[in-house]
Design a protein around this nucleic acid. Structure first.
Length: 290
DNA sequence: GTACTTGTTGAACG
DNA sequence: TCGTTCAACAAGTA
């Protein structure tokens, strides 16, 4: 569920609390949540200081002072909750309907313990998320193996690069490619629908059918939508809460996602349609998006 | 009980 | 080898 804006929100929430902290222990209850051996994970994590916290695609990066980076992917239902005191939690991800003040709970699979007694809890109902630790010098290789495209706010994300990445997928639908993280990273089901609505392009359109002008519209709207969502601290669906109990505000600003059968906010005449594309749902206005 | 949801990976296909 | 589609992962909700 967390897409780029939600991950960015968690990173921003955690940064002031976690930066500079020294890891004194890690408690791994479910070993499949880490992508290296428990021994190696403990060796690399324990005793190191978090010098910076950032993001690449939908992954959180905790840069350590030993030349390694702790990577966290929340996938669909992961959450990172920093317990700064008994009563205050900060961070977030995808809290479920459990009391986040009573941690660890049954969904806490990994706890990072900091010197001084603070904890960072990694909870995940569906157990799809993971943590791993990669040497800084191997990070680029790690991203390349995952076929990650450019960051939407990076100057390397040019229109020409975007076109080039799309050119090898001419027969795919635009929705599918934007979800694939290969032409640009950070979009998930919600924000792809929002970008395509704003661009006036139907999600089922094949890449080869899109004109340069249409592609440019999509390209330009990607950072616009994502920046707005970050400004609103992400989208809160169902039980989604930020770690301190606040909710993201982006839900109020969504124009198509989750608005099936509701009046289109642009043309005010058509109703938003919801279709299945692959195994995912897509929302669009049949009048405004051709 | 059944269908549905989500991000990503890997298998199967042509 | 490459592009494309689809099942799989887990568990809560409708």
């Amino acid at each position: 569920m967390p897409e780029l804006p939600e991950v960015e929100t968690v990173v921003n929430d955690l940064r002031p609390h976690v930066k500079g902290q020294v890891i004194c222990d890690v408690d791994v209850r479910l070993e499949k949540m880490i992508q290296l051996s428990l021994l190696k994970f403990r060796q690399l994590a324990i005793g190191s200081k978090v010098v910076q916290i950032g993001r690449r695609a939908k992954m959180l990066l905790f840069k350590l002072d030993n030349g390694y980076t702790l990577i966290v992917h929340l996938k669909m239902s992961g959450q990172l909750i920093y317990q700064s005191s008994k009563d205050v939690n900060r961070g977030g991800g995808h809290p479920i309907n459990h009391d986040i003040h009573d941690l660890p709970n049954k969904y806490t699979h990994i706890t990072i313990k900091f010197r001084g007694g603070r904890n960072l809890f990694f909870n995940d109902v569906r157990q799809f998320g993971y943590m791993t630790i990669i040497a800084n010098k191997s990070l680029e290789k790690f991203y390349t193996e995952k076929k990650l495209g450019p960051e939407p706010f990076d100057k390397s994300f040019t229109f020409e690069i975007f076109l080039k990445k799309l050119s090898s997928h001419k027969n795919s639908s635009v929705k599918q490619i934007l979800l694939s993280q290969t032409a640009v990273v950070g979009l998930g089901n919600i924000y792809v629908d929002e970008v395509l609505f704003k661009a006036g392009i139907r999600p089922t359109r094949r890449i080869k059918s899109l004109s340069r002008k249409e592609l440019k519209k999509i390209y330009l709207n990607i950072p616009i939508i994502l920046k707005l969502a970050i400004k609103k601290s992400g989208t809160t669906m169902q039980y989604f809460r930020r770690g301190d109990g606040r909710t993201g505000d982006m839900l109020k600003f969504l124009k198509v996602y989750g608005r099936e059968n509701k009046q289109c906010l642009r043309c005010k005449t058509s109703k938003i349609k919801r279709i299945r594309q692959g195994s995912r749902s897509s929302h669009y206005c049949p009048k405004c998006q051709q």
